[in-house]
Design a protein around this nucleic acid. Structure first.
Ligand code: ZN
Ligand code: ZN
Ligand code: ZN
Ligand code: ZN
Lengths: 133, 133
DNA sequence: CTGTTATTTGTTATGTCATAACATAACATC
DNA sequence: GATGTTATGTTATGACATAACAAATAACAG
């Protein structure tokens, strides 16, 4: 449905790093990992992240000031995504809920608010960390 | 219903500053405003903010890395609050939606996720800024 | 009142996240 | 190959947040 974004070298490196790690990373975490690949300055990372986020290939977690590769299990790239972030193991689950979206849209409509973007993030403990084995 | 928290001097100064301004302020914004009152270091502000947020008298806006006084119109201090942040005028509206809360709780229940805190923030343009006059 | 404990405050230094500004290189398209 | 556009490299700086320790103050039992 969406076009292949054709990543540049830096974008590819940054996305690969996020995917390999699987859990949220700060831009400086990524920078540290990619020193060997010639990435030397924060801006190189932030610029790549901007594009990846815009393309829906990565997400910014506002409550963490960090980034994570899109899980992409379902085609959620249109519409509101929620994140559940485990504070113990760092895992992130993405889920989309049409009802939540509908309620937020409904509130906006009633209030005359024009939404540009929405953030829905849960912080807590994931199932795996609650029952250790 | 909840007891009067009995604010300390610094907490009172910081809350007053937030209330007077009405729109989100960073800790350093507050610091700048309160230099005259003897507040000299970021930590004094952050410590006061921690307590105010814990008491529900102020809120942290994750997507802004900033803080705002609680609007407190309704007794929303128990349960999930959503924020609509105008990117034009900086105004913030708080609202609580039981259905959203229920959906998030439902997802958590199904997934075995134990939620410690939730963030719901909309960024966009408020009614006043959409229709200027 | 007095000693003990817990909380709050003051202060310095440092750590972490993000962007401004400007120069250069790569790439497309005519 | 000139031109406009996008991506990069680099240095410096700005913005947000906390560590660590010392001093003052509040709370409270004896
Ligand atoms: Zn995703
Ligand atoms: Zn976990
Ligand atoms: Zn509130
Ligand atoms: Zn507005």
């Amino acid at each position: 449905m969406t076009e292949p974004p054709k990543l540049t070298r830096n974008q590819d490196l940054v996305l690969g790093c996020l995917q390999k790690t699987g859990t949220p990373m700060s831009a400086y975490d990524i920078l540290g990992q990619l020193k060997a690949d010639g990435i030397k300055a924060p801006l190189q990372v932030y610029r790549a992240l901007d594009k990846l986020v815009a393309a829906g290939l990565a997400h910014r977690l506002e409550s963490l000031n960090a980034f994570v590769a899109c899980a992409g299990d379902e085609c959620h790239r249109r519409g509101l995504i929620a994140f559940a972030i485990c504070e113990t193991c760092g895992s992130v689950e993405e889920f989309a809920d049409a009802v939540i979206r509908q309620r937020l849209d409904g509130w906006a409509e009633e209030s005359g608010f024009h939404t540009h973007s929405a953030t829905v993030e849960l912080r807590g403990t994931c199932a795996g960390c609650t029952r250790p084995h």
